[in-house]
Design a protein around this nucleic acid. Sequence first.
DNA 1: TGTTCATATAAGTCATGACTGAAATAGTGG
DNA 2: CCACTATTTCAGTCATGACTTATATGAACA
Lengths: 116, 116
Amino acid sequence: MHAFDILGDPVRRRILELLADAELPAGSIASTIGAEFGISQPAVSQHLRVLRDNGFATVTVDGTRRLYAVAPAPLQEIDAWLDRYRKFWTNRLDALDTELRRGRRAAQRTPEDGPK
Amino acid sequence: MHAFDILGDPVRRRILELLADAELPAGSIASTIGAEFGISQPAVSQHLRVLRDNGFATVTVDGTRRLYAVAPAPLQEIDAWLDRYRKFWTNRLDALDTELRRGRRAAQRTPEDGPK
DNA sequence: TGTTCATATAAGTCATGACTGAAATAGTGG
DNA sequence: CCACTATTTCAGTCATGACTTATATGAACA
């Protein structure tokens, strides 16, 4: 299952939104999501498994609780995939900013970039 | 169908990759994709329809040809959704850069940001 | 006008993934 | 050790979306 498929499901997206702000135990996620979407606790657990199995979340065991947290790698991959489209909504100065932000050391000068 | 679902399909993702560099007629897309994935022309046409219907592509009619081009809006929406996770892979200076890049006029100073 | 490209639509099949209720696993505290 | 709580796993159902082949649409041109 591709990262985009994982995020295609609104329940999983919402779970990740909850986890964006703080780590949460499975039970807390299950009650929030269960209430919001009207689905059962096992359904939520299955979504958590998908998130785990695909690297979107990590778990730390705490007694009988499982604390879920965002694992950013696949999200960052998606961010990288979007790079090729940023030119459609980012102006030239923004693009330079982005280059710098990403730590590039030198930029290839294109003809029309040359001074005057 | 949510934007992430649209990108979940590898064929559609590849079509968008082709369109990232240049506009292309449906036929050219169909032969490239058909060869790469081993699917029929109607299959590709159906994917193009999904991309159109969901705002990922625009068409301009040119005689009997249809020229497809990227429509960036939904991609930008996804980019915006990712904002809440950028803190996981972006350092503080990068974050400032991003703020500036996005045109914010003022940043709320948090306690630990204060000088000294 | 009739044939030929370029493309889209239609109808039907098939695989898959998102649920459900039931049951298993495993800490914790009396 | 037993019961209770937290969570996962299992097995089965159902909806949906990604194909297929066949067919329709419609511009171009001889």
